[in-house]
Design a protein around this nucleic acid. Structure first.
Lengths: 237, 237
DNA sequence: CGAACCCTTGATAGCTATCAACCTGAGTGG
DNA sequence: CCACTCAGGTTGATAGCTATCAAGGGTTCG
């Protein structure tokens, strides 16, 4: 299987074979981590940068009232906050949602990449900007759309993101999330996620069984959800 | 009046007098812009970086259904996306909400700042990370809190942010936003903003008249809204 | 077989949107 | 000086979306 980081960053900058070699070296040593393990907690001092090779990770916060808010998903190829080390402590936590393979990258390595590999540096900047754009789009999604469109929008986004790392085919992918995770992501209750899912199924917009999501008609779902993938900036930097 | 950029960046990195001089030179030429003018539109190619010296600016998107979603506020001292130039085109727009004074910074100047002024570079990174953290907190706010707490949370955030640039005193500030803008920010209707505001007033949590917001008991409002200012990382980098 | 976890279903309550007026103050022009 | 306009704020009535509570069903696993 290929290097998901290379696949992803290739969308942000043209990479030379030299760049690719450097990125391949990067993922030689990785750690396996079980599902539902915190990679880092709120208030921790940020240390290494993390790169996901396999599995789903989420950023989340726990509120005063105990509710969990999932703020982002990291999928293979995603790298988290290049320069968090600048901050004294984390303002949120990160947790694996499935068994994962993760690379821990030292600040020195980041330094090396960004100063000696200009195309990689550019691609990393691009990835950072896309992360911010995704956050903005999620904000729009939460603030402005009814829950069925919200869920549809999330499904569309994950389709595109997983396609860039060859983890989704034309119209389906493995989606190992519980309805509870979806609820905490979309700001609705688990009961309601369940009902909305049923509705989407009934309308023929999605098929979701055994954690495989199939979108019979991608164009139709995108229209339904008001999804415009521009914000993922996959046409490069 | 002082340089709001210096005031803000001082929280992200210790600046020398040399750094300060450089930042002061930066704001020597600025443009006045009227209220409700787009600074940049969706799909535009990003050009200059913008620094707000006076006034309120918002990032926003318009949805298929015509709704406006406000994604962020920029207040004096805020600088927008250092490296947007990497992206081909904007995925959102920016608009002044009041008359503003704005500095347009060329990519070359950014280059100069980030390569020749390491402490400024660090502070700019810090500001970028804080922007992302703020976006995450807004996401939590929209997804998990009822509308009265949402509004209270926004008021608390603006208090802290405006205090860092000396535009708010201990417990009050000038807030030139319409209820419509608040509604588009919080994902609720203008009618509901109106009612929630009345409730907050009635409960003695805020006084809002003539665009001046007074928070009689800051601690109380923060508790009510579940506000924890950690995410603004004002204790520096 | 029981426990645990996740999904599903039904009934009810509550929050928030929508629609439709009306009010107010500022600015405009006759 | 008054009528007019317009944007923003306010109020009331109603509908609808979504939460909550409670219970039941299916699977996996020890």
């Amino acid at each position: 299987m290929g290097n998901p980081l290379t696949m992803k960053l290739g969308h942000g900058s043209k990479l030379t074979s030299d760049d690719r070699q450097r990125l391949d070296a990067l993922i030689e040593t990785s750690s396996r981590i079980e599902a539902y393990q915190d990679l880092i907690r709120e208030h921790d001092p940020p240390g290494h940068v993390r790169l996901i090779l396999e599995g789903f990770v989420c950023r989340y916060k726990i509120l005063e009232n105990g509710r969990r808010s999932i703020i982002a998903y990291l999928v293979p190829g995603d790298i988290c906050d290049l320069h968090v080390a600048i901050l004294r402590r984390m303002d949120h936590a990160m947790c694996t949602l499935t068994p994962c393979k993760v690379v821990f990258i030292s600040p020195e390595t980041i330094e090396d990449l960004t100063t000696n590999y200009p195309r990689i540096a550019r691609a990393l900047w691009w990835a950072t900007l896309v992360d911010a754009a995704t956050l903005r789009e999620w904000l729009v999604n939460l603030g402005q759309r009814p829950s069925d469109q919200r869920l549809g929008h999330l499904f569309c986004e994950l389709l595109m993101r997983l396609q860039t790392v060859e983890l989704a085919d034309e119209n389906s992918y493995h989606l190992p999330l519980t309805q509870e995770a979806l609820a905490d992501t979309l700001g609705i209750s688990t009961v309601h996620v369940n009902r909305v899912l049923q509705q989407l199924r009934e309308d023929g917009l999605v098929v979701f069984r055994d954690h495989r999501l199939i979108i019979p008609n991608v164009k139709q779902l995108k229209e339904f959800a008001g999804f415009d993938g521009n914000y993922l900036h996959l046409d490069g930097g």
